[in-house]
């Protein structure tokens, strides 16, 4: 059994929190920006702040209530959930990187949202309820993944709540301040690479904790976590090449 805080575990949690929150924040900010441009800033900001408050309270309450459970139960529970979540994230990132599904296009996402918002009836009162409700929904749904990562790593790991929360908060702040200037880089190949990195780290945590939960003997947490994360990265890179080669051979793939 593992105890105490490990160097690799803390860094992996910080990176997972930072990158996942950065990836989700860019998408969410694009839509909130579209809402603000079309319907006004008051409703968009009020909805977004309310959603952030709900997400923070949810994460706090979940972490507090879950930490009363035995450590072994938490590891198995969050190990299985992180395994499914991480592998699903990695699968999606691989399909995007291999161009088997459309690339993330923030420009068209923004244009689509603006067009949809212009179809709605204009705000009749000083406070735009429609804009606030839409912003609330977008931020809530967009933030669910980040909340899960914070809760899973924060409650399941010893001493990981601070690093993962700090990573997520730093990413949110950075995206809000620098997002408009960096969005092209963040939405391009950097986004694919970040997605693969997050998927690999979360899958590594999931495998480690779920494996520990079923009684597998790991060679030590730092070594196992690094080995698994690197292993999943290599598996993802190899898989992407195989799919790309297969698609180019058969003439399949997006944009072909």
């Amino acid at each position: 059994m593992f105890s105490g805080v490990n160097f690799a575990e803390v860094w992996a949690a910080t990176v997972a929190g930072f990158l996942s929150c950065a990836i989700e924040s860019v998408d969410v900010l694009t839509i909130v920006f579209a809402i603000a441009v079309v319907r006004g800033w008051t409703g968009a900001l009020a909805g977004s702040l309310a959603a952030l408050l709900v997400l923070s309270i949810t994460a706090g309450v979940l972490v507090q209530s879950l930490t009363s459970l035995p450590y072994s139960t938490l590891h198995l529970l969050f190990g299985v959930l992180l395994l499914l979540f991480g592998l699903r994230w990695l699968r999606e990132a691989m399909l995007r990187a291999a161009k088997a599904v459309p690339q993330h296009d923030l420009g068209s996402l923004y244009a689509k949202e603006v067009a949809a918002l212009r179809e709605l009836q204009p705000a009749s009162a000083t406070f735009d309820n429609v804009a606030a409700a839409k912003a609330l929904k977008i931020v809530l749904f967009g933030g669910m993944e980040v909340v899960f990562i914070v809760v899973a790593l924060g409650a399941g790991g010893s001493g990981l709540l601070m690093p993962v929360t700090a990573g997520a908060a730093a990413a949110l702040l950075l995206v809000v301040i620098l997002g408009p200037f960096l969005y092209k880089a963040v939405a391009g190949p950097l986004s694919n690479a970040s997605n693969i990195a997050v998927g690999a780290v979360l899958s590594a945590y999931g495998t480690l904790w779920a494996g520990e939960g079923i009684g597998a003997a790991w060679p030590g947490i730092d070594l196992a976590l690094i080995g698994l994360a690197v292993g999943y990265l290599l598996v993802a890179i190899g898989g992407i090449h195989v799919v790309r080669r297969g698609n180019s051979g058969s003439g399949r793939g997006i944009g072909q």
């Binding site: 395994l83 592998l87 990695l90 699968r91 691989m94 399909l95 291999a98 088997a100 599904v101 899958s203 495998t207 779920a210 494996g211 597998a216 003997a217 790991w218 060679p219 196992a224 698994l228 292993g231 999943y232 598996v235 993802a236 190899g238 898989g239 195989v242 799919v243 297969g246 698609n247 399949r252 793939g253």
Partner: peptide, 22 residues
């Protein structure tokens, strides 16, 4: 034990990606 777990998950991941890409 850990190696078998990792290899199994990796195989399943690649299999799912291959199926989805087709």
């Amino acid at each position: 034990e850990p190696l078998l777990l990792f290899l199994g998950f990796s195989y399943l991941l690649n299999d799912s990606v291959r199926r989805a890409s087709r």
